[in-house]
Design a protein around this nucleic acid. Structure first.
Lengths: 72, 72
DNA sequence: CTGCATAGTGCATTATATGGCTCTTTTTGG
DNA sequence: CCAAAAAGAGCCATATAATGCACTATGCAG
């Protein structure tokens, strides 16, 4: 997942769950400003920050081998 | 994936590919010191740094919904 | 034991992420 | 159209990630 995709995924997930940035910020312990920056594509969050956010949204950060479509 | 797992995954992947930290650092553009800190569990890398490292190792950072075992 | 390659660490500097406050813009309902 | 809610953005202080350099520790071959 590229940067933009990660953001889209987070935003989409948050919208599906019908929660505001403010709520996610409070529940995750991440500053509202930080979350806003991230979702608006301005930031470069630390892994910890991303994990906190993902966690509240019922998601997790993972590393996968990217050989989904090796030869096409 | 928890923090420690991410690290283990990166280290394991690097070892499978038989590349040194130095090589990964050079190829990814991430400082060797930064990579060493991350692999030794000392850091909290930014998403960008993690992506650069994962990329060189043929991996990618992704967000997944963590409902692997909903009710048990 | 010796030497070499790879990995881990201390220290200092620079760049930047975090986060509170306030204000503006956009979205959502009535 | 209006007002409230939610999202985005500027300013700014503080914490910390990124990085280079030098040194130490570890593992392995001879």
């Amino acid at each position: 997942m590229h940067y933009a995709e990660l953001i889209k995924t987070i935003k989409a997930r948050r919208e599906v769950l019908q929660v505001t940035q403010e709520t996610v910020a409070e529940l995750s312990g991440v500053g509202l400003r930080t979350l806003k920056q991230f979702e608006s594509g301005k930031g470069n969050p630390t892994l910890l920050t991303l994990q906190k956010i993902a966690d509240v949204l019922g998601m997790e950060v993972s590393l996968t081998i990217k050989n989904i479509a090796p030869n096409k």
